[in-house]
Design a protein around this nucleic acid. Structure first.
Length: 393
DNA sequence: TCTGGGGTCCTAGGACCC
DNA sequence: TCTGGGGTCCTAGGACCC
């Protein structure tokens, strides 16, 4: 049996926990509602009564709830709190799979002797999380991860839903289409186009018919999901790590100097993370979103690891200018590195000599900047550009 | 009131190799 | 004389999730 545990309105709940004056009030964590182009990340259940939800623009949320408490969020604190919760999960099973900052699967195989039947374990876990962290969770229990995940969403917040073995298919087929995890607006549209309006109807369609329309992988997924069977893709964990940074600017960028400064900022963030998290990569990609929201990107794989800011910035600039439709206003820029590995590519060492001093300097600076409570060392060009490129001051 | 930021996985086509 | 089949790596784009 598997548990899926989901922290309720996580970011907003942490704020209400840390600041009692926010409790019982509509709390909205996300972009500044008075700035342009901000969206809601998470909101409390009190805020949801006003019609506010994740991904809605913050400005709209403000219209719906002018007296709401709008906060920009404290990611460090949320990570801290997340770890506290995950530690509790670890006490229940040696096999905990965290899938995001506020969710995890817990394999309960072989835990009966310690904690009793699975449904009792689930209730015990809910109580312990509440007592030790002050947060509430919603829990799903089922014979596979996929169904457990769907089950945790049935009774929110502070809910528990148990799908008994043997009833998985009936459970899934009693739900509306949009409850299918892994099926978004595009696929729902496509399903409706071929006359499938419910999970029940999908389950009555043959696997091959689904594969013809949606492709092998997606077709199989839909077929299995509608029958309440474990969807393979959710069990297989491959290591194809990527690290990226992107930013939407309050106003579209057109000036080369400002664009390059923006790219520089993103390159710094990506370099910092690669270095502090101990990754190596030779594949660089950039992303451009124009004012009309059309999005494009390009990537390049180099022979050696891109292991310095200078190399990354140069690669990013080249990629950018090969792609930019000059003169078109840019709403978002992104920089990332893919296929990140924890081991350096040995070939890279052969060519590293000319940059050795620069790299040492860079490492020293990153080392320094990763310490808490120190003034950060930054490129002068980035200091002066903050007001034009950032949302917050 | 236009639509964040950080990710993962999948597909399709091209290049290249044996 | 237009030419197989298998495999891998790379790139661009799309869909989805929290």
């Amino acid at each position: 049996m598997f548990l899926h545990v989901d922290l309720d309105a996580f970011f907003a709940s942490v704020e209400q926990l840390d600041f009692p004056q926010y409790r019982g009030k509509p709390v909205i964590v996300g972009g500044d509602p008075n700035a342009r182009r901000g969206v809601v990340s998470t909101c409390s259940y009190e805020a949801r009564k006003f019609g506010i939800h994740s991904a809605m623009s913050s400005a709209q949320a403000k219209l719906l709830c002018p007296n709401g408490i709008f906060l920009k969020g404290r990611m460090e604190r949320y990570h801290e709190k997340s770890q506290e919760v995950m530690k509790i999960f670890d006490e229940f099973s040696p096999d905990v799979q965290q899938i995001s900052i506020d969710e995890a699967f817990i394999d309960l195989t072989g835990t009966e002797r310690l904690f009793g039947p699975a449904d009792q374990t689930a209730r015990l876990l809910k109580t312990q999380v509440k007592e030790k962290t002050g947060l509430t969770v919603s829990v799903g229990l089922a014979s596979n991860k996929y169904v457990a995940k769907i089950a945790s969403g049935i009774l929110k917040p502070d809910g528990f839903f148990f799908v008994k073995p043997g009833t998985e298919a009936d459970f899934m087929q009693s739900l509306p289409l949009d409850k299918l995890w892994g099926v978004g607006s595009k696929t729902i549209e496509k399903l409706k186009n071929i006359g499938l309006f419910s999970i029940k109807e999908i389950s009555n369609t043959s696997e091959t018919a689904l594969q013809r329309v949606f492709g092998i992988s997606c077709g199989t997924f839909l077929y299995n999901a509608s029958h309440g069977r474990a969807a393979e893709s959710f069990d297989a964990r491959t290591q194809n790590h990527s690290i990226s940074a992107e930013r939407t600017y309050p106003y579209d960028l057109t000036d080369s100097y400002i664009i390059e400064t923006a790219l520089m900022q993103l390159c710094e963030e990506v370099r910092f993370r690669l270095e502090t998290e101990g990754y190596y990569s030779k594949t660089v990609h950039i992303k451009i979103r124009y004012g009309d929201f059309s999005t494009t990107g390009t990537q390049k794989t180099f022979q050696n690891d891109i292991d310095s800011f200078e190399n990354l910035f140069k690669a990013v600039k080249d990629l950018f200018y090969s792609k930019w439709h000059n003169g078109y206003g840019i709403r978002l820029l992104g920089v990332g590195m893919q296929n990140c590995s924890t081991t350096p590519d040995s070939q890279g060492e052969l060519f590293a000599f000319d940059n050795e001093n620069l790299r040492k300097l860079e490492k020293t600076i990153i080392n320094h900047n990763s310490k808490k409570n120190v003034p950060k060392i930054q490129k002068a060009r980035l200091l002066s550009s903050n007001s034009t490129l950032k949302f917050e001051d």
